[in-house]
């Protein structure tokens, strides 16, 4: 029995290991950052996520869409209704057709999703040297070790080593698959002015926007973990009782 369990665990470890290896292939190992949302009791760091939203809005949103996130969702980051309305109203949304059959632009409302910077993927590609900036709604889940990858990527820009040739319009980034990335370094020291006075270093902004993007990708994370603790506690008690019942029933066979 023990042997079997050991084999199964071995298989799982091998399986996970294989994924890890594939993630880091060709580049340096991803750093292991500590995140507030890690672990069984993990929660989002709301001030950090709010700063991350600011970074997204001021830096990323020019090129990257966030099409699965609605303004109303921001309530989960601790914003009140008026703040959400204000965020939404700053956006311009295409709506319609109106009574004349024309599409028209209007201010955003809380029910709207974040509008995309480009009308479609081809337009996005055309405006960006042929490679469309990907949507960021799910990015923190769409890459192996997503949060670590995002933060490492955002802080990982460097001068290329001599044996790596970087073409015009590309930047060297060892954490990007292939090490050459079409996105120019997006973050600079003091690139945003944080409303809460936090010093906007590149790593701070990278960590904050990653926190925000993790929330965007997995908005139900807190709910999930809190429910999980209750469910498992319940199941442990129930299973314990079932075991006692089983012992009682089988005791007859003595």
């Amino acid at each position: 029995m023990k042997r079997v369990i050991a084999s199964v665990l071995g298989a799982v470890v091998i399986g996970l290991g294989a994924q890890g290896a594939a993630a880091a292939e060709g580049g340096p190992e991803l750093p292991e950052y500590t995140w507030s949302f890690d672990g069984v009791f993990g929660q989002f760091d709301l001030p950090a996520a709010q700063r991350g939203l600011q970074v997204y809005r001021e830096v990323c949103a020019g090129c990257h869409s966030l099409r699965f996130v609605a303004f109303r969702d921001l309530a989960a980051l601790g914003y009140n209704e008026d703040q959400i309305k204000a965020f939404a109203a700053e956006a311009t949304v295409v709506d319609g057709p109106d009574d004349e059959g024309e599409m028209f632009e209007r201010d955003g409302r809380p029910a709207d999703r974040f509008p995309s910077p480009f009308p479609n993927e081809k337009a996005a590609a055309a405006a960006n040297n042929g490679s469309a900036p990907p949507d960021l709604s799910l990015m923190a889940k769409a890459r192996p070790h997503g949060p670590n990858y995002l933060r490492a990527l955002l802080t990982g820009y460097a001068d290329p080593p001599e044996d790596v040739e970087v073409m015009e319009g590309q930047s060297y980034n060892p954490y990007f698959p292939g090490m050459r990335i079409a996105m120019a370094p997006p973050l600079f020291e003091e690139g945003v002015e944080y409303q809460d006075g936090t010093e906007a270093t590149v790593d701070q902004m990278a960590a904050d926007v990653t926190q925000f993007l993790m929330w965007a990708a997995e908005p139900k994370l807190q709910e999930r973990k809190q429910m999980g603790l209750k469910v498992i506690l319940f199941l442990l008690v129930l299973t314990g009782i079932l075991y006692a019942v089983k012992r009682k029933v089988w005791a007859d066979l003595h």
């Binding site: 319940f234 008690v237 129930l238 009782i241 079932l242 006692a244 019942v245 009682k248």
Partner: peptide, 9 residues
């Protein structure tokens, strides 16, 4: 015990 198991179930 049976009642408890049934109830929790």
């Amino acid at each position: 015990l049976y009642l408890l198991a049934g109830g929790m179930g």
